[in-house]
């Protein structure tokens, strides 16, 4: 028989709003940039984490979503896997790195930019913050794919690669963003299914 898993919480950042389990936490229609919007959430959450300011915007968004997702957990198991996906990979920062090397006369690639030209870095940031020493995988898809995320989360749990999974979609491209994270575990109330994950994503 197919093992049953559960979605125990979820967090979304879209349309200038951040919400948890479908309930609005914070909104800001006045920010001029994603950087300012993210800083607003950081202040709202009363975080003290200097590394946050060094992150690129993609990492900031996934970091903030993970903070909210995990905020009611006293201790997160270090055996919690991260499975993230998006459409634009790290292109938002790739373009910034490309800008630093387009002019031979003014050729100064920045290590602090280059390091963020890999999409899996956001899982590194979340792992450092919560001391997760578990599986990471970053996938690129055309659009949010509840079926794939459900399948791979199941595979990780079925093969005992992790005790919980944080899966989701963190996309940023030309100032458009879409962030959704869900916490999948072996116990809970809402059964994990691609339909349920999709409903939460759309909510």
């Amino acid at each position: 028989m197919e093992q049953q898993y559960y979605i125990t919480s979820f967090c979304s950042i879209k349309n200038n709003k951040i919400s948890k389990n479908g309930e609005l936490l914070y909104s800001d229609d006045n920010s001029d940039s994603i950087k300012d919007f993210a800083k607003g959430i950081y202040k709202f959450l009363e975080l003290k984490y200097p590394k946050f300011h060094k992150m690129d915007e993609l990492c900031k968004l996934s970091f903030l979503a993970s903070e909210v997702l995990l905020s009611d957990q006293l201790e997160v198991s270090e055996d919690t896997a991260l499975v993230l996906a998006n459409r634009a990979s790290s292109l938002d920062t790739d373009r910034k790195h490309q800008d630093t090397i387009k002019d031979r006369e003014n050729y100064f690639p920045s290590p602090a930019v280059f390091v963020y030209t890999l999409p899996n870095i956001m899982m590194g940031e979340i792992s450092i913050r919560h001391q997760l020493k578990s599986e990471n995988a970053f996938f690129v898809k055309k659009a949010f794919d509840a079926k794939f995320l459900t399948t791979y989360s199941r595979v990780l749990l079925d093969t005992n690669k992790a005790s919980n999974v944080i899966c989701g979609w963190v996309d940023l491209d030309n100032d458009k963003y879409d962030v959704f994270l869900a916490f999948i575990s072996r116990n809970g109330e809402k059964l994990l299914s691609k339909e349920q994950l999709n409903n939460f994503y759309k909510s």
Partner: peptide, 17 residues
């Protein structure tokens, strides 16, 4: 200031630039 290895590399770029 709690700077790390990436910061050190960034300072090398700053010196040159």
């Amino acid at each position: 200031l709690g700077l790390d290895s990436i910061d050190a590399l960034e300072l090398i770029v700053l010196l040159e630039k």
